[in-house]
């Protein structure tokens, strides 16, 4: 059976605006992916724990409140701590250009800003997941 792309989508922080992330979830689903949407107010440990349990290829988060410079690094940190550094982290929201550059330097695979078509995110994810490889032996 062909491997499906599995992606976890979550909203960290206190911001409840979920229109964008639901549109992205639907678009990913319609591009043939399995999307695990874990909803609002997810803390970095909750997000990374869910990503590990669901064995996802990527984590996508959406932040519109301005707390991105706190939350992205916290999630990266948690991923490192839990040995989940191989999972791609990407995100979207109202994120100024300077911050976007800083975050991508920090290890966030990609930041999408308002107006980006969902197709762009789909294309990014398909290519990025295809590049990933694992040499782990199962048994």
């Amino acid at each position: 059976m062909a491997k499906k792309i599995r992606v976890l989508l979550a909203k960290p922080g206190l911001d409840g605006h979920d229109r964008g992330i639901k549109v992205v979830a639907a678009a990913f689903r319609d591009a043939g992916m399995e999307v695990i949407y874990t909803g609002l107010r997810q803390t970095p440990p909750m997000i990374v724990e869910a990503a590990i349990q669901e064995d996802v290829d990527a984590i996508g988060i959406s932040i519109l409140s301005g707390a991105h410079m706190t939350l992205f690094p916290a999630i990266l940190e948690e991923m490192k701590k839990r040995g989940a550094g191989d999972i791609l982290l990407f995100g979207g929201g109202i994120i100024p250009e300077d911050d976007k550059i800083a975050l991508e330097k920090m290890g966030v695979a990609r930041i999408f800003t308002p107006g980006a078509p969902t197709e762009e995110a789909i294309d990014f994810l398909q290519k990025a997941v295809a590049r990933k490889s694992s040499d782990e032996k199962i048994m």
């Binding site: 689903r29 319609d30 399995e34 999307v35 909803g39 909750m46």
Partner: peptide, 17 residues
């Protein structure tokens, strides 16, 4: 799973905080 696209939106984790 959507029979048309092969994708799925899995939302059952939402209460598992």
């Amino acid at each position: 799973t959507s029979p048309f696209t092969g994708g799925a939106l899995l939302g059952d984790r939402v209460r598992m905080n």
